[in-house]
Simulated scan of single mutants.
Amino acid sequence: MKAIWNNTVVADSKDTIVVENNHYFPADSINREYYEDSIAHTSCPWKGRASYYSLRVNGELNKDAAWFYPEAKDAAKHIEGRVAFWKGVQIVP
């Protein structure tokens, strides 16, 4: 699977895990040059506290477009540290 934003592949892996219709990519499959840490956080009752990345590609910013669970709750340990996307990031085979 590939995560594409602004005509650029920001993650690429054959080992994604789908949870709630979101593909979670392994942390080592993201192209870190496009990622910026965000101060945003959200909470999920069964997955835990999510942290976010913003994407910057070709001078354009997609704020908080990727999220991950650095310390997932027990029910979500299988996606801990993996990265998922929204806000216009396309996920394609």
Results as ranks from 00 to 15, higher is better:
Met1Lys: 14
Lys2Gln: 15
Lys2Thr: 02
Lys2Cys: 01
Lys2Leu: 03
Ala3Gln: 04
Ile4Gly: 07
Ile4Cys: 10
Trp5Met: 04
Trp5Gln: 07
Asn7Glu: 14
Thr8Trp: 02
Thr8Asn: 02
Val9Ile: 15
Ala11Ser: 11
Asp12Arg: 05
Ser13Glu: 03
Lys14Gly: 04
Asp15Glu: 15
Thr16Asp: 06
Val18Tyr: 01
Val19Asn: 00
Glu20Thr: 01
Asn22Glu: 12
His23Gly: 03
Tyr24Pro: 06
Phe25Ala: 04
Phe25Leu: 00
Ala27Pro: 00
Ala27Trp: 09
Asp28Ala: 08
Asp28Cys: 00
Ile30Ser: 05
Asn31Val: 08
Glu33Ser: 09
Glu33Val: 12
Glu33Gln: 14
Tyr34Ala: 07
Tyr35Arg: 04
Glu36Ser: 08
Glu36Cys: 02
Glu36Lys: 14
Asp37Met: 04
Asp37Cys: 00
Ser38Tyr: 06
Ile39Asp: 15
Ile39Trp: 07
Ile39Thr: 15
Ala40Leu: 12
His41Pro: 01
His41Val: 15
Thr42Asp: 03
Ser43Leu: 11
Ser43Thr: 13
Trp46Leu: 03
Trp46Glu: 02
Lys47Trp: 08
Lys47Pro: 07
Gly48Ser: 02
Ala50Val: 07
Ala50Gln: 10
Ala50Lys: 11
Ala50Phe: 13
Tyr52Met: 13
Tyr52Pro: 13
Tyr52His: 06
Tyr53Cys: 01
Arg56Glu: 12
Arg56Lys: 14
Val57Tyr: 11
Val57Leu: 07
Asn58Met: 00
Asn58Tyr: 04
Leu61Met: 13
Asn62Asp: 01
Lys63Thr: 14
Lys63Asp: 06
Ala65Val: 03
Ala65Lys: 10
Trp67Gly: 09
Phe68Ser: 02
Phe68Asp: 03
Ala72Arg: 11
Lys73Gln: 11
Lys73Pro: 00
Ala76Val: 12
Ala76Lys: 10
Lys77Leu: 13
His78Gly: 03
Ile79Asn: 13
Gly81Ser: 00
Gly81Glu: 01
Val83Tyr: 10
Val83Ser: 10
Phe85Thr: 02
Phe85Cys: 02
Gly88Gln: 05
Gly88Asp: 03
Val89Leu: 13
Gln90Met: 13
Gln90Ala: 14
Gln90Pro: 06
Val92Ser: 14
Pro93Thr: 09
